[in-house]
């Protein structure tokens, strides 16, 4: 399932939250990134039908067919950012009731509630009141509720909010499995870049209601060209800033260097320079950008104070 947004503008009175946004969320796992107030929640609200865009169209593309998003909202599962549960309901009651409200017959909703609670790892706690769950269990219960009606598309708003490191790793692993093994399209809205880097194939970065970066995570974090990360022995080895013509070296830590080579040079010259300095190579790898660097660079470019 692919979501396409075409010139979408969202206003809250006079304030424009999203301005003529045109982008697409391809199938797989997509990270929706942005600072607070960048317009992530507004885009999600519009897709969920809670806010009506003042302009633009939203489409859902499946099997080559383009459908208006408003008619296909039944196929969407949503996991809210805030703690949300049904008061006094057990995990099973909450998930099955939400399944029935999504249009499932009672018997199917009950069966499916057991299945998804088992999937998220709440099978032992499903008959306990959700109000008594830990933060991690509540996140899982919300994910089960988002999955109960078997949606093809999932919107997960900050799914790792308030989780300890182990629970966070478990949640991310589960999100990854949903896309890989169950074929769900997942839109993960978050500001935790590591979460996106670990589970998402594609990323859309919003700033001030506009897309500033969009693309495959692997492409965005690809090698920066002729820069390498070099680890050497001994760790106290000192290298000059330019050990040979066309080679620049920057010390990053004990035994760690960033090496830049001009286009005409290969790594043999680097090895020769190292041998001459009395060092040995432990590892040499092309330097990759992190998603954080991509994000910071893109956002800085858009900030008014950064513009000339």
């Amino acid at each position: 399932m692919r979501i396409e947004l075409e010139g979408v503008t969202i206003r809250y009175g006079e304030r424009i939250a999203v301005s003529e946004l045109s982008t697409s969320f391809p199938p797989g796992t997509v990270g929706l990134l942005g600072r607070n107030g960048a317009g992530k929640s507004s885009v999600l609200k519009a897709l969920l039908g809670l806010v009506r865009p003042s302009a633009g169209r939203m489409w859902l593309v499946q099997d080559g067919r383009r459908q208006d998003f408003g008619t296909t909202r039944g196929r969407v599962g949503y996991m809210p950012e805030r703690d949300a549960h049904l008061p006094a309901a057990t995990g099973f009651e909450m998930v099955s009731l939400l399944g029935m409200l999504s249009g499932m017959p009672r018997r199917d909703a009950w069966r499916r509630a057991h299945e998804v609670l088992f999937l998220v790892g709440l099978e032992e706690q499903r008959y306990r009141a959700v109000a008594g769950y830990s933060a991690g269990m509540r996140q899982k219960a919300k994910l089960a509720a988002a999955l109960v009606h078997d949606p093809g598309l999932l919107f997960l708003d900050e799914p790792t909010n308030g989780l300890d490191p182990q629970a966070r790793a478990d949640m991310l692993a589960l999100v990854g499995r949903l896309a890989r093994e169950l074929g769900k399209s997942v839109v993960l809205s978050t500001h935790i870049l590591q979460d996106v880097e670990s589970v998402c194939d594609h990323v859309v970065v919003l700033e001030a209601g506009k897309v500033v970066v969009a693309g495959e995570v692997a492409d965005l974090t690809e090698s920066t060209g002729r820069e390498y990360q070099l680890a050497v022995e001994p760790s106290d080895l000192e290298l000059p800033a330019s050990p040979a013509p066309g080679i620049t070296v920057r010390r990053e830590g004990p035994g760690q260097f960033t090496v830049g080579l001009v286009a005409s040079m290969d790594t043999c010259a680097l090895f020769a320079a190292l041998r001459a300095a009395g060092g040995r190579v432990r590892s040499l790898a092309p330097r990759r950008r992190t998603l954080e660097q991509v994000f910071v660079t893109a956002v800085r470019r858009e900030l008014p104070e950064a513009r000339p």
């Binding site: 009651e93 399944g99 499932m104 169950l182």
Partner: peptide, 29 residues
């Protein structure tokens, strides 16, 4: 691994509509 039964069985059967869809909320209340 996600269990095979979850992959093979779709969660969506015949869809309930109209007041029958909202009735479980009144019943739960």
């Amino acid at each position: 691994m996600i269990h095979d039964w979850l992959k093979e069985r779709s969660g969506r059967g015949a869809e309930v509509s109209g007041w029958r869809r909202s009735w479980p909320l009144a019943q739960a209340e």
